[in-house]
Design a protein around this nucleic acid. Structure first.
Lengths: 340, 340
DNA sequence: ATGAAAGCGCTAACAT
DNA sequence: ATGTTAGCGCTTTCAT
């Protein structure tokens, strides 16, 4: 059932020509209200859905967008979060009749290899556009491979705001609340990303003249005991951080535990922020604040930008900026207890 | 560049008709070796890639497979692992000229709603098949919606082996090594899944006559202190588990820490298995064994099964079974120290 | 073994 | 505002 319903069926059911049906589907203004209604009813009655392939052939627009992402290598456990990205993007596309097509790129692939791969995909599906997902958005070779073949490219940080640094953002939040002795515990997962966040933290503190980053910076260790020891080493002395930033959520939980064992009240004596959110953070006592990267929303926004750019090839558009990072405030945050 | 190369271009470059080119692409045996070679060279020289849309229209096969998955709701943080699934599936499809198309289904969506959604997708792209990803593989309504429209369905557990229960598998591994006093710490994330694993653990122990599941079963808590307390409560007494299974990797690390603080050697005095793998487990001291769900491989296998079933509509196939769960053995495992 | 003819379902040009 | 005429790039079916 529902098989083989074509524009022709709709046309005869509505008593018009295929063209009129086509015009209705394509929102052409040159259709009389009556005709439009009859066509719409016929479409609904028959459950007609136009064939993407046929529209692609005839109209030259495939309504397919490439979602180009880096396929995780076994060791690079760095979770891209496709679980939440892809539904968001799909949802943004479908009301416009567009669809996403996956294009995984092997990490550190040679430019020639990925160029060939993209060439094959472009030839086969002729996508109307491509979204370069991080960390691929910085690969000039991919962008060139796409654009040289007339495939427009978008990234998550459209034309607007520059990328925010999570380490810097977290530090800034704490500085704004009066904290100066702010500790930072990196995550062991992705060395490059850890360095990046750490640098952001450092520059934020340096701007405010704090020297905490000389004393309270440590590397996260996989052994829980090491993290607990570290937390104790920082929190037992009189001169101690009034706030600590951790990259991993688990480290934040470990610090919280040590603080409570030492009778330090969170957040009164110590504020906590994790750079990575996790359900466990929301359920701990007290819940721990975390930075939240609205990547799914930014991906959806990128898809929408792409589509509107495609549809009105002329009209100048102003892309509403999307904030890159937000803080999920939870009870682990308070103003600095006093000046030290 | 590379734009607009059609079968016609290849045909004239090779000095043959379009049909011959088509036959070469479709592996038809009715082509002379010389002609085939000339065509293949022309294809390579021109960088020709056949248009999916055109093939779909003319041949009635879209070479598109639907990857139907449950889109995570805000609270259902249950990570499906699309990050690793999709590249694996894509890789399995591409050598055959097939592609994956995403179809997210809202969790607990009404059957009528998802039926309409699938109908729209099927009408638009006319997929040659669909893979129902867990936990959607048990939704009879989705399967019906697909199959009633002549779209063949596959799931991760092909025709072969039944689904293994992670809790049961882990318990069985330990029982095989002589353990009887085996503890189990559930995870707080997905209640249904936790119950399921716990039941598997219970039945495995019951089969061997162990009664440990009466004493050493506990619920995981988000607060680290609670988990540490629990581990101490189990490990301090003389009658204690010789092995512990945890659902969350963090809980395993916490138990490991307590054991070491109590001067219990892992794995000599205590074996540890997590039901969820994580890079941190491999880096701890000692590394902690974990169950590993080869879902990416099973997804790739499902795609391959689908494609071969599609290509040889006649030949009877025997699907090689794929093991559902494997144990990543690490230094946290040893035989039971003694009978208690 | 190869070619010629006839579409697949739709849209872009032209008509009218 | 609507209908008509050509294709889009392939695969089918039927000739040769």
């Amino acid at each position: 059932m529902g098989k083989g319903i074509t524009i022709e069926d709709v046309a005869s059911a509505a008593g018009v020509s295929r063209q009129t049906v086509s015009r209705v589907m394509n929102q052409s203004p040159r259709v009389s209200p009556e005709a439009r209604t009859r066509v719409e009813q016929a479409i609904a009655a028959l459950g007609y859905v136009p064939s993407l392939a046929a529209r692609s052939m005839a109209g030259g627009r495939s309504r397919l967008l490439l979602a180009v992402f880096e396929s995780p290598s076994p060791e690079t456990q760095a979770t891209l979060g496709l679980d939440r990205l892809l539904p968001a993007g799909t949802l943004a596309c479908s009301p416009h009749g567009y669809r996403l097509l996956l294009e995984p790129i092997a990490p550190e692939s040679a430019p020639a290899a990925s160029d060939a791969q993209l060439a094959a995909t472009i030839g086969a599906v002729q996508p109307d556009g491509a979204i370069l997902l991080p960390p691929l958005d910085s690969r000039a070779d991919l962008r060139a491979a796409l654009e040289s073949r007339k495939v427009p490219v978008q990234t998550l940080h459209g034309t607007g705001a520059p990328v925010e640094n999570p380490g810097e953002a977290a530090a800034q939040h704490l500085l704004d609340r009066g904290h100066r002795q702010i500790g930072f515990i990196t995550g062991p997962s992705d060395p490059g990303h850890a360095e990046y966040c750490l640098a952001g933290y450092r520059s934020a503190l340096a701007r405010k003249g704090s020297r905490a980053h000389r004393h309270f910076v440590a590397e996260d260790r996989p052994d829980l005991g090491d993290v607990l020891d570290l937390a104790r080493a920082w929190l037992v002395p009189t001169i101690r951080p009034t706030a600590i930033i951790t990259m991993r959520s688990e480290a934040a939980l470990a610090v919280l535990h040590v603080a409570q064992a030492l009778k330090l009240a969170v957040p009164r004596d110590l504020s906590l922020i994790a750079l990575e959110d996790d359900p466990a953070l929301a359920r701990s006592h007290p819940p721990v604040a975390a930075l939240h990267d609205p990547a799914p929303d930014r991906f959806a926004a990128a898809c929408t930008r792409m589509i509107t750019a495609l549809e009105n090839r002329d009209a100048p558009r102003s892309d509403p900026p999307v904030s890159a990072i937000t803080l999920t405030e939870r009870a682990s945050l308070a103003r600095a207890p006093r000046a030290i």
